[in-house]
Simulated assay, not measured.
Amino acid sequence: MYVPPAFRETDEAAIHETMRAAPLASLVTATADGLLCTPLPLLLAPEEGERGVLYGHLARANPHWRAPALAESLAIFSGPDAYVTPSWYATKRETGKVVPTWNYVAIHAYGTAEFFDQPDRLLAVVTRLTGRHEGERTAPWAVADAPADFVAAQLRGIVGLRLPIARLEGKRKMSQNRSAADRAGVAAGLAAGDDGARRVAALIPEG
Results as ranks from 00 to 15, higher is better:
3 V>C: 06
6 A>V: 08
9 E>W: 02
9 E>V: 05
10 T>N: 15
11 D>I: 13
13 A>V: 08
15 I>S: 08
17 E>W: 15
17 E>L: 10
18 T>F: 11
19 M>W: 05
21 A>S: 07
21 A>C: 07
23 P>K: 03
24 L>N: 00
24 L>C: 02
24 L>P: 01
27 L>I: 02
32 A>K: 09
32 A>E: 15
34 G>T: 01
36 L>I: 11
37 C>M: 15
38 T>E: 07
38 T>A: 06
39 P>M: 03
43 L>A: 05
43 L>N: 04
44 L>G: 01
47 E>Q: 15
49 G>Y: 11
57 H>A: 03
58 L>R: 03
64 H>D: 07
69 A>V: 04
71 A>I: 00
71 A>M: 05
74 L>G: 00
75 A>M: 02
76 I>N: 03
77 F>E: 01
79 G>K: 10
82 A>I: 12
84 V>K: 03
85 T>A: 11
85 T>G: 04
88 W>A: 07
88 W>C: 01
97 K>N: 13
104 Y>C: 02
105 V>P: 11
105 V>L: 12
105 V>S: 11
108 H>W: 00
112 T>D: 15
112 T>S: 09
112 T>N: 14
114 E>L: 07
115 F>E: 03
116 F>R: 04
118 Q>N: 14
123 L>V: 09
123 L>H: 06
124 A>C: 10
125 V>G: 00
126 V>R: 12
128 R>D: 13
129 L>I: 04
132 R>A: 05
135 G>W: 13
136 E>G: 12
136 E>Q: 13
137 R>G: 07
142 A>F: 13
143 V>T: 01
147 P>H: 06
147 P>N: 06
148 A>E: 10
156 R>G: 14
164 P>F: 00
164 P>R: 00
168 L>T: 08
169 E>K: 06
169 E>N: 07
171 K>S: 13
174 M>G: 03
177 N>V: 10
177 N>S: 14
178 R>P: 00
179 S>D: 10
181 A>V: 03
182 D>P: 05
185 G>I: 09
186 V>N: 03
189 G>E: 09
191 A>T: 02
193 G>W: 03
198 R>N: 09
198 R>V: 09
200 V>H: 00
202 A>L: 08
205 P>G: 15
205 P>N: 12
207 G>K: 04
